[in-house]
Design a protein around this nucleic acid. Structure first.
Lengths: 216, 216
DNA sequence: CCTACCGATCGGTAGG
DNA sequence: CCTACCGATCGGTAGG
């Protein structure tokens, strides 16, 4: 980090504190839900006063929204961005699926996948939080589909492949693995998900796509 | 309903009230979670006092456990039992998958599948509620696997089929459909799930199993 | 960022 | 099944 002027120091500190709050909020929300993420519990875990924490956000809803945004940022850093250097199409898709499954399997949070928990918690409650969670997860599903379309254009998968259907099925596997490993404590849940995704892609692939698959 | 003696009437009424409470509790829990199922909210929705309702249960945990049990009972009535008359194996499996998908697609509750919501809500929180949810959902997954084993014994699906893996994938599809329809409001989510399950089974089936598949 | 407070609601109890 | 209550915690505010 470069040295900065003192005048810029105060807002920076506020930002850093906010980051620390959100880091803890992510963990709390993943295990106790975005509703169980209470201002009192969070502030006492951080050793600060309720109102001191509250000042960083305008309301509980804003705290929840900021937590979802922090989760989106983490997801982009750990999963989305590292594969942006890959060729669009099958290559990037395979990288994404690998990064995604690894990210959730080795999640440091008690509750596993933040977005699956938030999805099910808010799908029956209209509001800003629900809308943001839907936007985040819906766009990830669309990204998988779009990469399948790119793979189709590059003749890596067959033209007859239903990209929407296939992205639906691939997405389902990682979600199922998160559920099975978190709740049922099935050891090789992510192994089953990886195998399912691979065999499903093998059916869709052209000879040129098949060689890409074999490299993974 | 048959007429009964007066002496038996009082405990019966208590049971009926309890059933009405649990019916409402199921709806509330499906949309607001088992933790958002508060005694105060539930009692005011039912037009009775908090302590009056509380008397039917010993604690909030007991209310949550009773609600999960009520959901299990509903699931047995609507999904499990109707297919018990079918032949074990592929026939019963197909019937179960159909009943299951229909049950969730046409769920009267605001939050969709009760068990998926409860799974994600409690997977990070050890305790009796988590254990019961895990037992209920884990045994359903095991029932699907067991029916695949029966289908294998009846030579309806190939011997090489990995029943554990396949039940994992079938289960994933219905869960994914519930998520996609509830949160993303994708119209044909259950259609995609049905198609995925069918095509996955088609790959596993023997010629004699194939004719059973075609009848569905 | 703090202390000190607000009304509302939480799970739960006493007593009838 | 009720009224009347308990201490704790909720989201949020006033004032510094």
């Amino acid at each position: 980090m470069p040295v900065d002027t003192n005048s810029e120091d105060r807002p920076r500190k506020g930002k850093r504190t906010r980051q620390q709050i959100l880091e803890r909020a992510l963990d709390l929300a993943s295990s106790h839900g975005l509703e169980g993420l209470t201002i009192g519990r969070l502030s006492s875990e951080l050793g600060m006063s309720k109102s001191g924490l509250f000042g960083h956000f305008g309301s509980k809803t804003d705290l929840q929204l900021a937590t979802v945004e922090a989760a989106m940022q983490r997801f982009e850093e750990s999963v989305v961005n590292p594969a942006l250097e890959d060729e669009p199409g099958l290559e990037r898709l395979l990288h994404w699926l690998t990064l995604w499954a690894d990210h959730i399997e080795h999640s440091p949070y008690r509750g596993g996948c933040f977005f699956q928990a938030a999805s099910l918690e808010f799908d029956g409650r209209p509001g800003e939080v629900r809308d943001l969670v839907a936007k985040a997860t819906g766009s990830w599903l669309a990204m998988l589909e779009s990469e399948l379309e790119a793979a189709k254009a590059a003749r890596q998968i067959r033209k007859a492949t239903d990209a929407r259907q296939l992205s639906f099925e691939l997405h389902a596997m990682v979600q199922q693995a998160n559920w099975a490993s978190q709740l049922l404590e099935i050891d090789n849940a992510f192994g089953m998900a990886r195998q399912a995704m691979l065999s499903r892609l093998q059916q869709a692939v052209t000879p040129s796509g098949a060689s890409l698959l074999r490299q993974t």
